[in-house]
Simulated assay, not measured.
Amino acid sequence: MSPDPTTDARLQHLLTLEGLSAETLTDLLDRAQAMLPDAHAGTALRHRHAGRTLCTLFFETSTRTRSSFQLAATRLGMDVLNFDIATSSTRKGESALDTLKTLEAMGVDVFVVRHADNGAVAALAAGAAPGTHLINAGDGRSAHPTQGLLDMLTLRQRKGADFSRLCVLIAGDLRHSRVARSDLHALRTLGCGEIRVCGPANLLPGEDVLQGCRVFHDFDEAVAGVDAAIMLRLQRERMEEGLVPSLEGYFRDYGLTPARLANAAPDALVMHPGPMNRGVEIDGGVADGPQSVVLAQVANGLPVRMAVIDALLVGA
């Protein structure tokens, strides 16, 4: 993120949650909670950023994130430009930065960027004009900051603002997950009492990513007594690398089933960033059960993204 929130109260970009202060994170969550009543209905905020333009610049496919940003910008009264990579000049060899500069010249104020490469959004931010704002909608396996924020908002709504009382488990394919990294950044910053991670050894990232976490390889031990279990998608596109012997074996060892959930705290939350592989990392009955807040996470994406856009544009 630039500039550093400790020296400048107004955000220029949101590239990662790493390095953000607890005050900045809390401010974004407070702002999102305040916008919640107007996020899904009503026109009270349609005047707030009327005349400003947001572009979804997605070099990877997306359903939840892209749609959520489109609606968030519309709720704030913005014009929305959806960049279609399949019909763009990038297929003719135009660089991502040249594409951004072209759209910037048309008056785009905010770019929401998803890219397959680590650090790609930060590189675009470095080349953007001073008045342009970039939001990272997921780059490689590096970061997905708005997903991290909406996960924290969902936790806070149901468990309270004191994260020091919580034991949170993140389980599954952490190695390839940008969501896991953003959740870990946020949980640490907000002072989560205990952060657990669990997965096969070859699906866990390096020690630098897991700093301060309790690492488990036995999922039954990992889930015992937790207040929330954040289940991650087993990224099937990686299966050709032979990362797990079989989907059936993975579900047997690391799938969240009703029996395993019964060993968590009685009011434990079940979370998942989506898309879900039912019968692989999570049982369908658990995904749709009374402890699941998966759809609440999706719903919270709208006020969170409104809050981030608003924070970037206020004072701009």
Rank of each mutant, 00 (worst) to 15 (best):
I282E: 12
A9Y: 08
S142I: 11
L54P: 00
G255H: 11
L184V: 05
G225C: 10
T43R: 15
M231G: 12
G160C: 03
V113R: 07
L14P: 08
D310T: 08
N300H: 10
H133Y: 01
T74W: 09
R278H: 10
T99Q: 10
A299K: 15
F83P: 05
A123T: 13
A268F: 09
V304G: 13
R10D: 05
G127K: 11
G242E: 10
R305P: 05
S88Y: 05
F58E: 13
K101W: 01
M1I: 04
F58G: 14
D151T: 09
S21T: 15
D117H: 04
A316M: 11
S2P: 00
K101D: 01
A307H: 12
S292G: 08
T56L: 13
A268S: 11
L204H: 14
F69W: 02
D27K: 10
L302M: 09
D253Y: 01
N263P: 13
T26C: 13
S95F: 00
H144D: 12
G285I: 06
T154H: 02
A228M: 14
D27Y: 14
P266L: 09
Q297W: 02
G51D: 07
E60M: 10
G140I: 08
T16V: 06
N277H: 15
R75L: 01
L153Y: 04
G284P: 11
M106F: 11
R175P: 00
Q12R: 15
A73H: 06
T26Y: 10
G284W: 04
V121D: 07
V304S: 12
D117M: 10
G284Q: 06
E18A: 15
A125C: 07
Q211S: 14
H144S: 01
L243Q: 03
F83D: 06
R156W: 08
Q147C: 03
T87V: 09
L210P: 12
C192P: 05
A86C: 01
N300W: 03
Q157P: 03
R64Y: 03
V294H: 15
P37L: 01
R178P: 04
G255D: 07
T6P: 00
P258V: 08
P3Y: 09
S89I: 00
V110G: 04
K159C: 07
S62R: 03
R46D: 07
D139Q: 07
T63M: 06
D220L: 03
N277W: 03
